[in-house]
Design a protein around this nucleic acid. Structure first.
Lengths: 231, 231
DNA sequence: AACGATTTTACCAAACTGTTACATAAACGT
DNA sequence: ACGTTTATGTAACAGTTTGGTAAAATCGTT
């Protein structure tokens, strides 16, 4: 579960329910924050880094529906999993709830066991989304699973060869690869490719990278090959 | 049981034991994967989505204990239930095993009936943890229980293949799946299906989604596969 | 046999690749 | 310092590969 105890924010106006949830989540080792109104909870959300939200459907003043919509509209909070607690299991409610972006639904009456399971699951999914293989080099990032290369937070479109080329370089930053080595690693089998072709692709890769960052991270080692600048 | 047959990975170096387990689990309809060494199994775990693990205590090279520790250390695999098979029923072993995070213990000699019961139980608990009702991606919603896909509040009719395809994509938004991976996950067993067939179904899925939202959430990664756009 | 769904096929457009040719820059010898 | 030699940068082009998609073939039911 990464670091420390996950923080869970509960929106619930009925004290007995709130107490019940709070107690049980506390026992499981979660840090619980309580909000009795939508407004209160939204304020807390601005202050604290929350890991998961339990949101009662029926709230005074601002409805749970509206709260959810606001949470999901805000870039800071939109990725926090929201579990809606609803008394009525009506189709209509569910559909409207989905539209607001709730991640899960629990219909009252629910067992604590079920609730805890859903909470675990919600936390897991949001954490596992974060777990990716990423290669970094300064502000240059390559997310292998998502197949995305970015400088800062600007995405850079790369063709398959440029992508693989950059990947090889990123796997050993600073190390110099000869053109032959790059042909082996990037082109794998394709037997008859001129070594000069590497130059062309390095050039294309540079062009893409420089279109964003200006500085060129690729170093030419005259007479040997290329590497990422290990400066 | 969600989709298809649960996949069970067996770590067992003794061929006769392996055969016995494999046969009986196969009869019950599980998909069985075999590993004769810890290393082999850990590799399989990186490739395949496994639902449950049977782990022999005594393994050559890497011990079962150490394998278990590694499984539980990895975020991707830590939630897979692990059932340890141990020849000695000593309390000490149990304690050490549970300490590494094994979910259950079976002491040899055991009856097949008992083993199958534990396996069922292990699967049940992990599935109930998984049960998130709703997968969301922007305004795109998939309600697993109701088998409804909607954009905003407009329902979208999907054929079974398109539905599963979308589900696989939604379970790891942004991640790129190769056509082969999609065939494995969506088509499951059907062995000889052309990879290009995936394209056709992606096309249909896109058509349905675009009929409502205009924007196309599916990204084509030339030379690699498809993913949900991780915008 | 007829129907609906799935898979394969075939063709087109778009994207990507490898080569070449020339421009530019670095290293070298005198 | 100078011209020469050698290596690298890069634009352009033709050829190839890849993906989208409609239509035909196949499969599975009824």
């Amino acid at each position: 579960m990464i670091t420390g105890n996950p923080k869970i924010l509960i929106f619930e106006d009925e004290p007995s329910q709130l107490e019940l949830l709070s107690y049980n989540l506390g026992v499981e080792g979660y840090a619980v924050l309580k909000a009795e109104t939508g407004e209160e909870g939204l304020l807390i959300l601005q202050e604290e880094p929350i890991d998961l939200i339990l949101l009662d459907w029926m709230l005074p003043q601002i409805s749970g529906l509206e709260v959810c919509r606001q949470i999901k509209r805000n870039k800071e909070t939109k990725n926090i999993p929201v579990i809606m607690l609803t008394a009525r299991g009506e189709e209509d409610d569910k559909v409207r709830g989905l539209d607001t972006g709730a991640d899960d639904f629990i219909v009252k009456p629910y067992s604590i066991r079920e609730l805890l399971a859903r909470v675990r699951s919600g936390l897991r999914s949001s954490y596992s989304n974060k777990s990716t293989n990423v290669l970094n080099y300064g502000t240059l990032h390559m997310d292998i699973l998502r197949h995305i290369v970015s400088v800062g937070d600007v995405k850079i479109p790369l063709g398959p060869i440029e992508y693989k080329l950059l990947r090889v370089l990123l796997e050993a930053p600073g190390r110099v690869f000869s053109r032959e080595q790059l042909l082996e690693r990037v082109w794998e089998n394709s037997l008859d490719v001129e070594t000069r072709t590497v130059d062309v692709h390095i050039g294309r890769l540079r062009k893409q990278l420089k279109s964003v960052s200006k500085a060129d991270p690729i170093r030419t080692v005259r007479g040997f090959g290329y590497s990422l600048d290990s400066a």
